[in-house]
Design a protein around this nucleic acid. Sequence first.
RNA 1: GGUCGGUUUACCGAGUGGCUAGGUAGCGGUCUGCAAAACCGUUUACGGCGGUUCGAAUCCGCCACCGACCUCCA
Length: 489
Amino acid sequence: MDNNFTIYNSLSRKKELFKPLHAPFVGMYVCGPTVYSHPHLGHARPAVIFDMLFRYLTYLEYKVRYVRNITDVGHLENDADEGEDKIEKKARLEHLEPMEVVQKYLNSFLKNMQDLNTLHPSIEPRASGHIIEQIELIKEILEKGYAYEINGSVYFDVLKYSKKYNYGKLSGRVLEDLQANTRTLDGQDEKKNPFDFALWKKATPEHLMRWPSPWSVGFPGWHLECSAMSTKYLGDVFDIHGGGMDLQFPHHECEIAQSTAAKGNEPVKYWMHNNMITIDGQKMARSLGNFITLDQIFTGDHPLLLQAYTPMTIRFFLLQAHYRSTVDFSNEALQAAEKGLQKLLKAIETLKKLKPSLTSTVDVPALWKKCHEAMDDDLNSPILLSHLFEGVKYINSANDGTEKLTAADIELLKKLFNIFVFDILGLKVENDNSYDDEFINSVIDASVKIRTIIKNNKDWSTSDLIRQELNKIGIKIKDKKEGGEWELE
RNA sequence: GGUCGGUUUACCGAGUGGCUAGGUAGCGGUCUGCAAAACCGUUUACGGCGGUUCGAAUCCGCCACCGACCUCCA
């Protein structure tokens, strides 16, 4: 399976040619959400980006197993509710069972993912369903001597680990710096060193989510689930691990340490990190409270939103920026994305009714090649889109008669747009208006026909009135030489 | 404070040692009874100061500003 697909590997900090460990199979793990509130714009980014990666790898004919976890065990907080589980805290606020909260927001997440037209991952494992695997992994790490137990909790011994392995290689941390800079958190006194992290925590009396273990009744540490589940479904070593840049340290660093300590080798060949979405120049995050949920965007129900934006507008907006750059939220940018997407999709419609010529005045195969190269270059979707808009120009010009396309080139363009726009970028046509209703269609056709007659009689005020009235109900009339055309807005 | 990254034309956003990225908006034009669409053209681009080079927005150094991570986070 030859390809020129290069991926920027966070581990090496450079682009590398993608070579799967066991072609044609590819193992891909992406950090999913902690389900304790509705997903926001920030969650859409890795979902869309890694969906695009999944789609592209599939297009390259790899057999991909895409695993995305659901964190439903919760993480510790360091505010007033020390050591309390995030999910549990929310549960008490809403008088719900923790798993009820999980279900609610999981449903919300999955629905939004569908809205965004992301494909389902091959497996979506939940942390709560893999407690046994996590306990087994802790045992392995203990056996290898890289963890220690204190008062029913188990911690990872970073100092010991770093004597043999390089802790900090992914994030560029130096242990001495970490030592000097780690803040004082709850439970620090138990640990040998402040940078040690929990593998298992003994539950405090008020902690509801708890499981028995050899050490105590408690819950697994924050980084363990990903190591346990990726190993279970993808093996000790797998191809791609993705996630947000904010997870690079400590989460992914700890994952590397856990797996390496237990198995003796690096778990991941290519680490990929998507950058953040910013709002007013600052990261959008639940913890910062400056987020807009996806449902709010889709309905327009948020003070910062001038209007509602469709899921595909959001998807297009995200794809217009490269995944390793920050992308700044603004109404202006979203409106621009909306228009751009419309232009793209409209051209695909125009393509369907294009009349072929005997010769072509543009080079369609070259365009295809450029699109391919853009994707091969570390998933450069903005460049791909720029090439696709070149194609849009070909189509519109051919439609205007200023360029020519052969039947073969028209077919090639159709294939090109189908593959890159729909299959790979995962965009789709959203407004499934009553185009298919024959009765309505013929009524509008009749109105347009009558207007054409009136127009031919140069009764401009009446023909303008008809256009106006039809416009009011969302029908746009476009006068052509051959007569009137109409479309729904 | 430490580590890392960014600063691009009206806005968003690519890119790169010499060749128009692209989208959106504005302006002018073609078409048109008008409009819409489309097409063509267009608007002091590359944070500042030095350096390397025949040539730098692109490489190097310093400075300024912004951000991310160092704590749960997509």
